[in-house]
Design a protein around this nucleic acid. Structure first.
Lengths: 204, 204
DNA sequence: CTCACTATTGTGGATATCCGCAAACGGCCA
DNA sequence: TGGCCGTTTGCGGATATCCACAATAGTGAG
C-alpha cells in the first residue's frame, strides 16, 4: 500500500513545483487541475493525503474538502493558500483539515507535513480496517442474535435473557454460541473488547 | 458548577470590553492582566474556558497555553490576536487550542465560541470524572489483584490464571471476587466495559 | 418441492463460576 | 503482642456455561 500525495491546483506551475519537490524526496504524487477532475477520476479508495489549493476557479478547495467528507473520503487534507486568512484556516482545521499552509511554503516544512499526513493516514486506515472487520462480523448476526448479544453485553445471565425474550435457556445458549463463533471470540469479555473498538475514536 | 470565562489580557480596555460583553450575555468572567497573575492565582480546578491574548508583555499567550497543558490544565483556550498570523493559528489549533480569533472580533460570534467552549468543557469534565472514578477504583486493587484482573481481561479461565500465577484456583476466585467488589461490577463483561472508558478519548 | 438458514427446544453431562465457612501465614501498626 | 490486611488454600454445594446429539418448524431461494 503506497501513500500518494494528491495535488489539486489550477495553476500548472504550482502543480509542477509540488510534484518536483515531492518526487525529489521520494514521495509519489498525482496531480489534477480542478476539484471536479479529482472527484471524477479518483473517488474510490485513496491512501496518502491531499494537497489542496484553497482558491480555484469553479469548485474551491474548501468546497472540495466538504464534498470529500460528505462522500466518506477521510483522506487527510493539507490546504495551500496564497493569501493569509486566519478565519478560513481556523474553520478548515476545526472541520478536520490536517494542515493549512501559506504560500510561499518552506520546502522542507511542507514535505514534513506531507509525511506526517501519510503517517496519520496509515493509522486511520489501520483503525478503519479493524472497525470494518467488526462491522462485517456484526452484519453476519441475525436479528435474534443481536438481541441476545445486546443482553450478554449488559452482563445478563442466560436465564434472564431467556425470560426477557420469552424463549428457553437452551435457545439462548445456542444463539450465544453462534454469536461467539461469528464474532470470532471465545468469551463475553473478548466480545465486549472487540465491540469497544467501535466506540474508540483514537485521538492524536 | 458554573462555567467561567477566564480573560487574560494586558490591555485593560480589552479586558473591560470582554467582560462587559460576556456579562451582558449572562456569562461569568474573571480577568487577569498577565499570564503569571493567572497561573499564580488560579492553577487549581477551573471550569469554563480561557480567553487568551496571544501577544502580551512577559509570558505570551502561547507560552501560557503550553504551561497550562504541562500542568494538566485542560481548560479550552480561545486565542485572541490583533495581527492575523496563519502559521500561529494553525500551530495553536493543532496543539489543541479550542479557537483562534482575530481582533476586532464579532461580538455575537465570540460569545457563541465561548458558549461552545463551555459546552466542550462540560463534556471534558464529565469524561474526566468517570475516568477518575475508575482510576480510584483501580488504585484500590492490590498488586496481586492487578495481576489477576489483567488475566481475566485476557479472557483466561480461573484455572489457567491459577497455573500461570502458581496458586490454587480457589485463590484466584477470591481475588476475582475482591476485584469485582472494588471495581463495583458484577461480571467480567462489566469490568471490561468499565476499563474501556479509560482508553476512549471521546472525540469532537 | 427441496435445500439452506434461522429459530426453537429437550436431555444429559463435563466444566466453570460463585460463595459461605474455615483456617494458616507473614507483615505492619499500635 | 494483638489486631488488621493481604495472600493463600480446602471443602462442598448451588448456579451457570458449554456442547454433542437429536428434533420440530417456518421462510425464502433455486
Amino acid at each position: 500500500m503506497n501513500s500518494i500525495a494528491y495535488i489539486i491546483d489550477d495553476d500548472s506551475a504550482v502543480r509542477d513545483a509540488l510534484q518536483w519537490l515531492l518526487q525529489s524526496r521520494g514521495v509519489q504524487c498525482q496531480a489534477w487541475d480542478s476539484a471536479d477532475a479529482f472527484l471524477a477520476s479518483a473517488t474510490n479508495e485513496l491512501f496518502g493525503c491531499c494537497l489542496l489549493d484553497v482558491r480555484m476557479p469553479g469548485m474551491s478547495g474548501v468546497e472540495l474538502f466538504d464534498r470529500m467528507r460528505s462522500i466518506q473520503c477521510q483522506l487527510p487534507v493539507i490546504f495551500l493558500t496564497g493569501h493569509g486568512d486566519v478565519p478560513m484556516a481556523v474553520k478548515a482545521l476545526k472541520d478536520g483539515a490536517f494542515d493549512f499552509v501559506e504560500k510561499p511554503y518552506d520546502d522542507n516544512a511542507l514535505v514534513d507535513k506531507v509525511l506526517a499526513a501519510f503517517a496519520h493516514d496509515e493509522r486511520r486506515i489501520a483503525r478503519a480496517e479493524s472497525v470494518n472487520l467488526v462491522r462485517q462480523q456484526l452484519a453476519q448476526l441475525t436479528q435474534r442474535e443481536h438481541e441476545v448479544m445486546q443482553r450478554i453485553l449488559a452482563g445478563k445471565l442466560n436465564k434472564v435473557i431467556a425470560d426477557e425474550l420469552g424463549i428457553a435457556m437452551r435457545t439462548v445458549e445456542v444463539h450465544r454460541s453462534h454469536i461467539f463463533e461469528k464474532m470470532q471470540v471465545r468469551s463475553a469479555v473478548e466480545l465486549s473488547q472487540r465491540l469497544a473498538t467501535l466506540g474508540d475514536t483514537g485521538a492524536t
